[in-house]
Design a protein around this nucleic acid. Sequence first.
DNA 1: TATTGTTATACTCTATAACTATA
DNA 2: TATAGTTATAGAGTATAACAATA
Lengths: 141, 141
Amino acid sequence: MRTRRENSPSCEAWRLLFDLLMEQRSRVPAIAAEFGLSPMQCHVLRLLEPGEPAPMGRLASGLGCDASNITGIVDRLEARGLISRRLAERDRRVRVLALTDSGVELRAKLLERMAEPPQWVERLPADEQQALCRILRRALD
Amino acid sequence: MRTRRENSPSCEAWRLLFDLLMEQRSRVPAIAAEFGLSPMQCHVLRLLEPGEPAPMGRLASGLGCDASNITGIVDRLEARGLISRRLAERDRRVRVLALTDSGVELRAKLLERMAEPPQWVERLPADEQQALCRILRRALD
DNA sequence: TATTGTTATACTCTATAACTATA
DNA sequence: TATAGTTATAGAGTATAACAATA
């Protein structure tokens, strides 16, 4: 029965979450702008971990976009001296990306800023924050 | 103490939620594409309720973007016959947007599709789905 | 032949600033 | 003067297709 399905707890939970997300669509763009970055540049810095260089292709799948987009995004980060391209030794078709020192530094500040919970999380009672953690941990399994 | 703050339940909840969101960044774009729409066109159709015409300016604030962007987005929706512009009677600077019949129809299908909860919600036990609803309802107060 | 990354192209979203027509 | 919307512009993300270098 359709009505029953639409009023199910799973649908309501998703609707509530969707509303919360839409209210905060500007969060990542705003934080990115604080650092003079675009949202996608932010995501690249987030995905690229210090000491763990990654091929460009992995970024494309991590970002869920076509490989041809990565070229331009990486160009701009490289131009700002935040990451570097180098050829992979074993397979010379592959370009491996690594954070520069300045990239490591900026990434740390960026992640610290993005880790700040939004007000609606902060304002929940402690026991509900813990319940939320428990539920989300299970969801991520 | 910084370490304590970063391991607080509110920070962990936000981090878990952020990870879930990032895993599903492509959800809205993918659904939009199913209907031949861009993500922003989707959001406009979602915000514009049948029988409740709205001035363009309200859309700009609802979408959190500059008013100058709305012109183009609305142009494309109008060209597809999904919405219509008309002059407001009392203040002729204002353009009021309304869904066309075809827009109402498409919006219904779109909202039904977007209301489908993602797998990670669906797979939670029923009691945790309900707990999640309770927490999110409180968060939205 | 298949794969990695680049380039070219075309479209959409984005903010800023200058403009119009109203108020 | 101030406001609602438009236009012009420049920059960034997006997919597709064609391409080079390498496997």
